[in-house]
């Protein structure tokens, strides 16, 4: 299963403790360029915590995070994003007072060339840069079917569209790796089907590697090349969907528990 070359992202023996609680214990993970990896595990397994150490929200208590072989452990979140890692959040975190367009536009701030004075002067350079950004934002929204909604306040969008907008906003930072934290949570079956197509389109169009946290086994099993299973903060299993599904430990810890349970 291991491929040659430096992985895009690698976590080496990462642990994260909050006081007495061990959110993660000795977790290692690698994601290759363009790969789609599913991250599964019951509630409280540490999936979001893993996202948080990969994106710099928390510094791991132990262990290392490498991006293309370069250590990025504990770097500030905006730096990690600028190095090519973008994410969405389990609890949607859009900029509620900004409209759909402006939510996407914030993703271009990190790449702005002109300075503050240029903004206030509104010179030629400023205007052409704003036009470029506007155009790219518009194209992205159109590509993901949100063009119609572009001047609506983001908090007025239907739930599924809010999730989609969060993905578009993350993509607008031009990531090489996209981390999606339960993007299908709260979606109906039709929306879930659309989400699967959306993920396929992202990979086809942008070649972005994706780490996908998902509770719905049908979604992950159907589209991921490789699964990583977390349980109570530790790595339980990793492999192809078929291998993972057949793993007795996984069945006991996760599939068994999930059986017959309503999605939350």
């Amino acid at each position: 299963m291991t491929s040659a070359g430096t992985p895009l992202l690698e976590a080496r023996n990462c642990s994260l403790r909050f006081g007495g609680i061990a959110a993660l214990t000795d977790v290692s993970l690698r994601i290759d360029k363009g790969e789609l990896v599913g991250l599964i595990g019951p509630n409280g397994a540490g999936k979001t915590s893993l996202f948080n150490i990969l994106t710099g929200v928390y510094r791991p208590t132990d262990g290392e995070v490498l991006l293309e072989g370069r250590p990025v452990t504990g770097l500030a979140p905006h730096r990690i994003n600028r190095l090519g890692v973008a994410r969405t959040f389990q609890n949607i975190r859009l900029f509620g007072s900004l409209d759909v367009r402006m939510n996407v536009r914030t993703s271009f701030i990190a790449r702005l060339r002109g300075g503050l004075l240029e903004v206030v002067r509104r010179g030629k350079k400023f205007r052409s840069e704003e036009r470029e950004i506007q155009e790219e934002g518009r194209r992205l929204l159109a590509y993901f079917g949100l063009e119609e909604a572009s001047i609506l306040p983001s908090r007025s969008l239907p739930y599924g569209d809010q999730r989609r907008l969060e993905i578009v906003r993350a993509l607008a930072t031009r990531p090489r790796l996209l981390l999606l934290d339960e993007p299908a949570a709260g979606m109906n079956p039709t929306e879930k089907e659309e989400l699967k197509q959306l993920i396929a389109r992202i990979r086809a169009e942008f070649g972005t590697a994706i780490l996908l946290v998902e509770h719905d086994m049908k979604v992950v099993m159907g589209i991921c090349e490789r699964l990583v299973v977390l349980d109570r903060g530790s790595l339980l299993a990793t492999g192809t969907p078929a291998e993972v599904r057949a793993d007795p430990k996984v069945i006991a810890a996760y599939l068994g528990e999930q059986h017959g349970e309503e999605e939350s």
Binding site: V57, H78, F89, R93, L98, T106, S107, I109
Partner: peptide
Amino acid sequence: DDEIAAAAMGID
């Protein structure tokens, strides 16, 4: 609106 989301979008 959301400092954590802003940082995650590359904003210092």
